[in-house]
Design a protein around this nucleic acid. Structure first.
Lengths: 191, 191
DNA sequence: CGAGTTGGTTGCACTCAGTGCAACGTGAGC
DNA sequence: GCTCACGTTGCACTGAGTGCAACCAACTCG
């Protein structure tokens, strides 16, 4: 009746999660999204098909759901953000720090997106970041929910644009540069 | 061997298309997305299941694919856009004119999105507008593809934010106001 | 240490989305 | 009228996603 999951259980769980995601990324980057079935991924991860769906609601989710550590890191960055220079500036800093922390999965994921049909998948799959940012901006601008949401959506647009413009052959820091450039452009304004 | 579809054929085709979309919007707004099957929609439209998929690649597409006339109208607006005051200003004008032309489907679609799980669907389903805008900005800023894509993604973010912030009980012009406000905010810059 | 519970895993069966293929029927060109 | 193009349809198939019941190892409590 433990309220908090016990270390060993938790470890099992995370291991399965990581095994499935690793298998999914490997197989899909090798064969393409449609040529890989959930059964393939489950088998490659040494796990049953049913267990796959215990961890991920969707095949696309297995590719794009954030590692719990990363999600936690983002929450932490947002919580610790210095908003003295304004919300947008703070968000810029958070996003840059966040992409810096993402060394492994990012290039692999980027390589998947070259295929045009996967665009729909990866767009929906990035909702995690957007939602985290959105609740943060809503808390920062409690008296102007419209602007709060607009800021969050725009930040997501910046990340998306940088992500798509980034050549995965380049190092991740190049991606960070694009993110910075995007934030600066939007910060200055298009008018 | 007519290279161009013949009037009667074309009419048949458009009728089926419209019947399916109308049935899909009606049924889903009534029962919710998951409680409606493709067979339900096809039957309600007086069409076979297979014909449904001849017109729409996806159940979500039946709800969000733009009417050919609307898609054409957007292309026309973009082609005729006055860019003398800058790309962003022109895009603002185009989007406002575009939402003005969309009287029927918009409120119905907006009502569907209240349900949180449909968000993923309608986000991917709005790619049409984004892609049209994207190719236009790419042509407008041939020497800066990054900014071009950023402008397009940001415009899509503005539309998305306004769409979500819009209370469908309010008239469509209220939606247009939100779009204008979003464009102005981003135009001014967040910094 | 033993009994009971919790929670991750698994197999099974089911619904439904989406696709390929072959056939049918009607409008259009010759 | 003959023929071809093309929208429509039925059929069969793969694969995603879900509900349910069972299993088993880890944890808890007495």
């Amino acid at each position: 009746m433990a309220a908090v999951p016990t270390p060993v259980r938790e470890q099992q769980r995370r291991d399965s999660w990581a095994a499935v995601q690793a298998a999914a990324l490997a197989l899909v980057s090798e064969r393409g999204f449609d040529a890989v079935t959930v059964d393939d991924v489950a088998a490659a991860a040494g796990v049953s098909r049913r267990t796959f769906f215990n961890h991920f609601p969707t095949k696309a989710a297995a590719l794009f759901d954030p590692h719990p550590d990363d999600a936690e890191a983002l929450q932490q960055l947002l919580a610790d953000a210095d908003t003295s220079a304004g919300v947008w500036s703070a968000l810029r800093r958070v996003c840059l720090d966040f992409v810096d922390a993402q060394t492994v999965a990012l290039p692999v994921r980027r390589r998947l997106v070259g295929d045009p049909e996967l665009d729909a998948y990866h767009r929906t799959a990035h909702l995690h970041v957007g939602q985290a940012v959105e609740s943060w901006t809503a808390a920062q601008l409690p008296d102007d929910p419209f602007t709060a949401q607009l800021v969050a959506e725009t930040a997501a647009a910046v990340l998306m644009t940088a992500f798509l413009a980034w050549d995965p052959a380049d190092p991740p820091q190049r991606f960070a540069e694009l993110v910075a450039r995007g934030f600066d452009l939007v910060g200055t304004g298009f008018a």
